[in-house]
């Protein structure tokens, strides 16, 4: 009997060791052959939404493709898991996805208590309000919204900012809280709410989907800081570094003018910084130190283009959203996007 128990205990110990969240995400990803990426289930045009061919597109999606290109040299080796705002952190914590790239705001609580690590800020955003101007003429400021019903998605920083903003300004309101963005969209469109609140980029994106987008206006107030970015699980610094430096590589590529079109000829550039970035410097170890190949930046840019190209294609002037770079311009052009040097 004693032997049986020892045997079972041994088996149990083995079993639990095997099933505990693995510490080496990169090895797991290489073994399974693709990066699992959590994106927005509701389809947020410009950030993550399937196009007419069913392919995922958007800024958040392209970031995952960039990571896949860094790891495998192939931006298609990525699979997407659509997640609601409510499920996203549990999916990342439990190892269901390797990266969460789902217009998620970086906050201290999420960084600490939730066990996440944010790899950077791929989009500087702020929360705003949208109203139906056709039905509410004369309302041109969020401060006039006292007594309004406001549609909002549950479990977001938006919901908390909304409460804070109305409290701070002594305004009354009635929240109508939905778990899914589609449900909130439908309720707003049906006239259940006077105003809709979420990140401003999201408002522009949702407005495109409404029956008559021209009737709806986004109010000028920005009531919060919403730094959106990809995150990974805590406890695996190697994987964290890869995701973080993928983001910085995209910024550096833009800064040095490396684009999807010219990346091959840039490899022959005499500029030592560009050579270092693209891994053509003699005896370079930058890529291999990261656990990747030295070609990693070249692969990223080949797959998705640099940060500026991703931005313009998905949300910028080349897209229906037509959002200007603003805070998301490079630091050299008056924005906040700043990539530490690759050296």
């Amino acid at each position: 009997m004693k032997h049986i128990i020892t045997g079972i205990l041994g088996a149990a110990a083995l079993g639990f060791a095997a099933s505990a969240a693995s510490a080496d995400t990169l090895d797991d990803i290489k073994a399974k052959g693709f990066v699992q990426c959590g994106v927005n289930a509701a389809g947020l045009a410009g950030f993550s939404a399937p196009d007419d061919k069913g392919e995922w597109t958007g800024l958040d999606v392209d970031f995952c493709r960039a990571v896949a290109a860094a790891v495998f040299g192939d931006g298609t080796k990525v699979r997407f898991t659509p997640l609601t705002a409510k499920d996203r952190f549990t999916a990342l914590q439990s190892g269901e996805v390797d990266i969460l790239s789902r217009n998620t705001t970086w906050t201290i609580n999420r960084d600490t208590a939730l066990g996440l690590n944010f790899a950077g800020i791929t989009y500087y955003d702020g929360q705003g309000f949208m109203i139906n101007a056709a039905k509410l003429p004369g309302v041109n400021s969020a401060l006039q919204l006292s007594g309004a019903s406001v549609c909002v998605q549950s479990g977001t920083t938006t919901e908390l900012n909304l409460a804070d903003y109305f409290k701070a300004n002594n305004l009354e309101y009635s929240p109508v809280v939905f778990e899914k963005q589609e449900e909130a969209d439908a309720a707003y469109e049906a006239g259940r709410c006077d105003a809709y609140t979420t990140d401003q980029s999201g408002l522009y994106s949702i407005r495109l989907k409404l029956a008559s987008p021209a009737d709806h206006v986004v109010l000028p107030e920005i009531i919060s800081k919403e730094p959106l970015g990809p995150s990974v699980r805590q406890g695996d610094d190697k994987w964290f570094d890869i995701v973080k430096w993928t983001y910085y590589a995209l910024l550096n590529a833009e800064e040095f003018g490396i684009t999807q079109a010219n990346v091959e000829e840039m490899k022959n550039s005499p500029n030592p910084e560009i050579k270092r970035i693209l891994g053509t410097e003699a005896d370079t170890k930058i890529g291999t130190d990261l656990g990747l190949t030295n070609e990693w930046v070249a692969n990223i840019v080949k797959a998705t283009g640099n940060y500026g190209e991703i931005f313009e294609r998905n949300v910028g002037t080349g897209s229906p959203l037509k959002i200007s770079r603003g805070l998301n311009a490079l630091w050299t052009k008056g924005g906040l996007q700043y990539g530490p040097p690759i050296r």
């Binding site: 705002a85 409510k86 952190f89 549990t90 609580n109 549950s154 479990g155 778990e179």
Partner: peptide
Amino acid sequence: AIGGTILNQTG
């Protein structure tokens, strides 16, 4: 619904 919101805010 409320539990879900709390889950999301606190993890």
